[in-house]
């Protein structure tokens, strides 16, 4: 089945089986491997991308369901000139990662969350990221990063 969608601002068209999951479409068909497959059961959030600007777990969406939609992955967050998104900078500056596996999903979930709640409290950040698991348990600096990003983006 032919699917066409916008991925990180570029139109992408591929012929896929209907059962192809969006995360595999992005990784295996489009070659964007920044989006990770973690639990594969919509629990861990490692596969979080934006669909039309909102966080979605791409292991629990079919590529055919994303036909005609606008997808953003971690590769599409920095500016075309390579300047990191404020959330990426905040993760870098606050050491918001340890092994890094959950990081793309954390960053995508956090950027979607700040659109809905631009000035969150720490408790709200923790709740906003409840769908993203860090196996290193590095939550403290992840939350710190998101709060720092909220501050820098609000300036």
């Amino acid at each position: 089945m032919q699917v066409t969608m916008t991925v990180n601002g570029q139109t992408v068209s591929r012929d896929v089986e209907p059962r192809t999951l969006l995360v595999h479409f992005l990784r295996d068909h489009v070659g964007l491997t920044g989006t990770n497959v973690g639990c594969d059961t919509s629990s861990c959030g490692a596969c979080t991308v934006h669909v039309n600007g909102e966080s979605v777990k791409s292991c629990t969406m079919l590529a055919v369901q994303a036909d005609g939609q606008e997808i953003t992955t971690i590769e599409g967050l920095a500016s075309p000139e390579g300047e990191l998104h404020p959330m990426q900078k905040a993760f870098q500056e606050n050491h918001g990662l340890q092994c890094g596996f959950c990081t793309p999903g954390m960053v995508m979930a956090a950027t979607s969350f700040l659109k809905e709640n631009p000035h969150p409290t720490e408790a709200e950040v923790r709740l906003g990221l409840e769908g993203n698991l860090c196996r290193c348990t590095g939550y403290h600096n992840i939350v710190k990063s998101v709060l720092a990003a909220a501050e820098s983006m609000g300036e």
Binding site: G45, T48, V56, K57, S112, E116
Partner: peptide, 9 residues
């Protein structure tokens, strides 16, 4: 229900 990403879908 679930988490924010789940609630978006």
């Amino acid at each position: 229900v679930g988490d924010p990403a789940v609630r978006h879908r």
